[in-house]
Amino acid sequence: MELFMKAAGAALIASVLGLALSKQSKDMQILLVIAGCCMVAGIAATFLRPVLELLGQLQAMGNLNSELTGILIRAAGIGLVSELACMICTDSGNASLGKTVQLLGSAAVLYLAIPVFRGLIELIQGILEGV
């Protein structure tokens, strides 16, 4: 948890430095915010790694289809990256760009979910043929 405290402190320092820079050069402030976000997201990834390993163990214990669980994990990753990009774009005053990145993330998740939907349709067809 020490790493979490350090990350929170670094984010606060980046925020204060960003405020100091905002009056002189707004563009440099945005770059500072992006650097801070990258650093904190990297730390969040180190916390997420054991969670994902646990998910892998659960998948192995439950004998689940690795293809389908992989889609879920990838969808979570896409969601995190698109949310981060969206927030940075919104902070820099480009809300429309941020919303478009969110739309891109949603489209990518839908694209990833095609095999799941295909599987569901085949399952429903199988059930209906059996009736």
Binding site: D27, C38, G77, V81
Partner: peptide
């Protein structure tokens, strides 16, 4: 020039973050 210098420093970090996310979420 200052913007370009900072952007070059940052581009590597962004690439590192994306690589980390790719590796972590099995892209």
């Amino acid at each position: 020039a200052g913007l370009v210098v900072v952007l070059m420093m940052l581009a590597q970090k962004i690439a590192d973050l994306f690589d980390l996310v790719k590796e972590l979420f099995q892209f």
